[in-house]
Structures are given as C-alpha cells and as structure tokens.
Amino acid sequence: MSNRMTNLLVPIVSVILGLLVGAVIMLVSGYNPLEGYAALWNGIFGDMYTIGETIRQITPYLLAGLAVAFAFRSGLFNIGVEGQLIVGWFAAAYVGVAVELPKIIHLPLAIIAAAVAGALWGFVPGLLKAKFHVHEVIITIMMNYIALHVTNALIRTVSDGGDRTENIFASASLRSEFLENLTEFSRLHLGIVLALVMVGVMWFILEKTTLGFELKAVGFNKNASQYAGMNVNKNIILAMVISGAFAGMAGAMEALGTFEYVSSKGGFTGIGFDGIAVALLGMNTPLGVIFGATLFGSLKYGALNMPNAAGIPIEIVEIVIAVIIFFVASGYIIRLLLLRASAKKKEAK
C-alpha cells in the first residue's frame, strides 16, 4: 500500500471507528443506534431547510479549520482559534451596529474588522513565540479566556449593561433572499461563498507564493530555513496573523450571517476547538478542510434532530467527534495496523 493511500485511509478509518464507538455507547446506554443515526441523517439531509442550515453550520467550520490548518503548516499549533473567533465576532457585530453605510462599503468593512481583530489576537502569541520562544499552545489558551472576558465586558459597555448588542444594520448583513428562498427560509447566508473563496486563498498562498513556500519551509525545519536566509521570526508571526484572520472571519460569519448580533457568553462556542478536529481530519490541506468541515458541521447540526426524533441526547455526536480526533491523533497505530494488514496480504500472495 502506498504512503499516500495510508495517509488517506487514516482519517476514513478514524471516522468509521468514531461512529462505531458512538453506536456502542448508544447500545450500552439503552438506545437504538440505528434509530439514532437515522435521526442524525434526517437532521442533516431531511429537507431543503435542514440542508440549508447544515451548510450554514459548515461555514464557520470551514474558516476555523483553515485557521488551524494554516498554522499547522507553519509548524504552529493554534488552539486560540476560539478566542480569535470570539473577538472577530464582536468586531464584526460592532461595525455592523455602530455605523450605517452603503452595503458595498459596510459589509466588507465589517468582515475586514473581524479579520483584523482575529489577526491581532493571533499576533500576540506569534510575537511571543518569535521573540521569547514561548510555546504558542499555552499562550493561545490564555488568550482564549482573555478574549471571552474582554468581549463580554465590551458587549456590556456597548449595550449599556445589556447581554447583547442590537441587530446589525441590513447593510452589513450576509443574508441573501435568494439562498433563503432556495432553502425554505433557513438561515443560510452568503458566508459560504466567502468561506470557499478563502479555501482557495489558503491554497494559493501555500502553493503559489514565496510567502507560502517560506511558511511551509519554516514548518518543516526552522534551522534549515534560517540557513537558507529566510526570516524565521517574521514567518512565525505572519503565520499566526493569517491564521488569526481566518478565525476572525469565522466569527464574522456568526455576527453578520447566522445571528446578526453578538451576545455575552458564559462559555466558549466550541467552533474553534472543533476547528482543530476539522484541520486534523483534513490533514491540513485546503481540500481536506472542506471534507472535515462538511463532516463535522453536518454532524453538529444533524445532532440537533436526535433528541426529538430518537430521544438521544445531542452529546452523543460530541462523543463521536472526540473519539474521531483521538483516533486521527493516534494515526501512528492505525498506520502500523494498516501496514501489517497489507504486508500479510502480500505474503499470502
């Protein structure tokens, strides 16, 4: 079996194993797994409305996945996507509420504000990593909590002590009547187009520009890159900034498309952490991220149908997602088993 094949098989085997574990848990706790997965299926593809909502759910997952994957390619682990997403969400909603401008200016402005906010939140760990060699994982975790508390305080200030901002002006909204009519008035919005464009942007940066070449080189081997005359520090910071910008835009999807406001949060949205799963499953490639985001976005939205249709708590899907991450991370052992299996086949021949 070729190396490429095994690389492709690891995520697929992981997903199958994850679903199997989910089925076993449902069975042991007294639910019917077939009923459960049927409800999940219908929750994803049931009618045009659910399909629209599923695609809406996939949108921020695409961008969050891109953010994690982009940092990974430069050898950085950005757990801070969650925080960068939250500040992006706030920035976009704030721009959407604070001013009223023609749509052609307002909407891009709000999206750019989100990207800049996310980029700033990514800049701090990038700078600390480059200048002080501090591990980015811990810094980004801390930045997540700082983002959560700071945006909550800002929302309270902006809304005069309330829990949420006003709805954004229509001129900053990503809503599209065409998409809504197409999907029986789901909340599907134009963000999906932007997210897919961004997948292309990531591919272009990584594969077609000098910057992307340098970023990947730094990811493979810092010392070699330094020796080749690349500015490693600059590349580390840039990688985190671009990653943060993707994450910030994921926040804009929620602010300008799905909710059209921002409310104070008791805990994290979870999208940022699921972004890690998306990137891992997609092996950090742009195309893989589409695959990962589609799977996890669908699972996440489809799960909402499970309590009603089958009486099963939605958390079962989170369990499945966690198990999938676990198996993808343990790819070494799956690879080993796959290799052994194929070696045996050869012997038999």
């Binding site: 952490f273 890690i276 989170e318 369990i319 676990f326």
Partner: peptide, 20 residues
Amino acid sequence: ADQVVSGVAINLLAVALSLY
C-alpha cells in the same frame, strides 16, 4: 499521538460523555 491533540480530545470527550 500529538499530546496536545489527545488532550483536546480528552476535554471534548469528558464534557460530552458526562453531559450525555
């Protein structure tokens, strides 16, 4: 496995399993 990723999986799993 990547220890950070495994840790993330543990966090997701624990919350999901206990709430389930």
